[in-house]
């Protein structure tokens, strides 16, 4: 997955989001070793200090941990990963309802439309 960064928003937040997605989607499996800060910064074409800050934030979120001598690893706590994944899913659904409300659709309308789309997709 390419690193698409928007210069209008803090870069470190976007790095957190990008790596978090790679963890919950299994691109980085639980317990696996994360590339070095320098390599990740080079890959994303960002400042190493910014990458360092993003990884610190992911540690605070308990998605990464540091092994003092050998680098950073993805957490082995699969429940924590599942929880973050679910939080992201809720956020997506919440955003969806907000968008639909702007179009003037209530929640019931949304369900009807979703059913219609799913049935439509089957045909």
């Amino acid at each position: 997955m390419a690193w698409v960064l928007n210069p209008d928003r803090p870069i470190y937040l976007q790095l957190v989001e990008h790596i978090r997605l790679q963890i919950v989607s299994g691109h980085y499996p639980p317990g696996s070793r994360l590339p070095s800060v320098r390599d990740l910064a080079g890959e994303a074409a960002v400042n190493p200090n910014t990458m360092q800050k993003a990884l610190g934030e992911l540690e605070r979120l308990e998605l990464l941990y540091t092994q003092r001598t050998s680098g950073r690893y993805i957490t082995e706590d699969v429940q924590r990963i599942a929880q973050v994944k679910q939080d992201l899913a809720y956020q997506q659904i919440h955003d969806f309802f907000v968008q639909m409300e702007r179009l003037g659709y209530g929640k019931d309308d949304c369900f009807r439309l979703m059913e219609a789309v799913i049935e439509g997709g089957k045909q």
Binding site: P7, I11, R38, A41, G42, V46, N47, N49, T50
Partner: peptide, 28 residues
């Protein structure tokens, strides 16, 4: 990329430019 991969905590880089959009991702 050379500037990024050359990065060391002991060293600093000062660069002047007009091409801000190109460099702003690598700046502190």
């Amino acid at each position: 990329n050379t500037i990024i991969t050359n990065y060391s905590p002991d060293a600093s880089v000062i660069l002047s430019t007009h091409l801000i959009a190109d460099v702003e991702k690598v700046l502190d």
